[in-house]
């Protein structure tokens, strides 16, 4: 099962079985956005508290496959405590990693090269690229986070 090991890395299975930052937050003060993958019925809710342009808290709720759940869990770790701007950069870098954005320069902003140092644990999700149908699973929580950041900033 060589190809599979790229998809289901140890760390992914760990985040699937023990998802971090799971649960809900009271709205308000938190905002919540919901995302669906119409293909497979997966759904994810991202609860977010933003204060002084910092992601103070994030919780993930919903149901989904190992890829979408672990991606959400890794994402929550990656953005918690970051500034909104840095969180948005992380989203862009993540999407670049999944080859959804191949230009190095998006909106005049240079995106860091993809490696263990720049994306940390998120690198574990890079193997998803080899399984195109699963890219949607991996990006679902990130698209939902983008919306949640927008709603938080619009408040």
């Amino acid at each position: 099962m060589s190809g599979l090991e790229d998809l289901y890395r140890e760390i992914i299975l760990d985040h699937y079985k023990n998802p971090r930052n799971q649960g809900t937050l009271e709205t308000p003060p938190a905002v919540v956005e919901q995302g669906y993958n119409p293909l497979c019925g997966d759904e994810v809710k991202v609860f977010l508290v933003v204060e002084d342009e910092i992601v103070k808290d994030i919780k993930i709720d919903g149901q989904g496959c190992s890829i979408s759940r672990s991606s959400a869990s890794l994402m929550s770790n990656a953005v918690k405590g970051k500034s909104v701007k840095d969180a948005q950069t992380t989203i862009r870098t993540f999407k670049k990693m999944l080859a959804l954005k191949d230009e190095d320069d998006i909106d005049g902003e240079t995106i860091e090269p993809i490696n263990e140092h720049t994306v940390g644990e998120l690198i574990a999700l890079q193997g998803v690229v080899k399984f195109p149908v699963r890219i949607k699973c991996a990006t679902l929580p990130w698209n939902t986070l983008t919306q949640a950041l927008q709603s938080a900033m619009a408040k």
Partner: peptide
């Protein structure tokens, strides 16, 4: 999850 079942 069924998605993971069909993948494997």
């Amino acid at each position: 999850h069924p998605h993971d079942v069909s993948q494997i």
